[in-house]
Design a protein around this nucleic acid. Sequence first.
DNA 1: GTTTAATGCATAACATGTTATATAACATCC
DNA 2: GGATGTTATATAACATGTTATGCATTAAAC
Lengths: 162, 162
Amino acid sequence: MVEDVVRTLGFLCMGSRLRRIGERLQADTQQVIDEAGLSIQAGQYPFLAAIDRAGPLTIGELAQAVGITQPGATRTTGQLLELGYVDMQPAPDDQRRRLVSLTAKGQDLVDHSKKVIWPRISAAVADLCGDLDGPILEQLAAIEDGLAVAPLARRSPVKEET
Amino acid sequence: MVEDVVRTLGFLCMGSRLRRIGERLQADTQQVIDEAGLSIQAGQYPFLAAIDRAGPLTIGELAQAVGITQPGATRTTGQLLELGYVDMQPAPDDQRRRLVSLTAKGQDLVDHSKKVIWPRISAAVADLCGDLDGPILEQLAAIEDGLAVAPLARRSPVKEET
DNA sequence: GTTTAATGCATAACATGTTATATAACATCC
DNA sequence: GGATGTTATATAACATGTTATGCATTAAAC
């Protein structure tokens, strides 16, 4: 068994570590989504959520809302368009801007997700790290250990008889 | 100004958020490395550190030590080989395994990094989040706010006269 | 009002992670 | 001791982030 260097090196590898845990969490989240039979990627959800919350947004505003760069927003928006979850049209007052809005199908997905999937994911993540406290490195260690014990998909879904 | 959805949604977007912060931290770390004039990528460092700590490791062990999958380890090892920091040779007892070891150049880089760069990065990250405490979402918010105020490269490098 | 600068999005090229799968070397089992 | 399975690495194909840059449109300057 080889030592986990990233973990051992602490603050020095904090970036790698956060990325790694984030990727793991997103993969686990994807599993929950897939098990629910929805055809969407975990990383696409924030885009839909942003439009649902704020109304139609431009590509640039989406990038800002989701915290990525504009080309990334352009690509993901293209995928969502392809999937039929959003629609896109030039802003009336400025032909450069493209306003992205939810289609009926997109709104349905969001509404359903708000009822069924999102609470479940939030609950699972809260179960994993909601009660943690203390220095961040210790919390990250606890999260990694927790994920090794039980992935998100096995954490406080809808409470079932055990 | 558009709302930061990932932040607003809390536990629901925890994966995206950790990834995002990790990427930012790594980019900042890269800046420190570049400013020091070293030709190495932040993501390659854990590989060198792992070998430095444990002695020659196989590709599989490197993957495990760094916490990524084997193809990722194969690729990064190839880059380090290309850069002349590591050497690779079949294990004497098992021709399938490839033992990756530091070259003199690689050891020099590690030694120098241990003295100069790593302490600086650790100090900067510690300055950013070492004293934080409390629920993880609050700490993440503090880290994001902190990075917006001053990137790693401007945080407790070697203390200079202000 | 035409020229010039700034803005918004698209695209290309690259980085670095993943999964799936091929291939070579070792281990095991009659 | 050769067939069969397992293991270690390599490679291909893909996902999703980035930076750099081009193009169309709007805004500003004169």
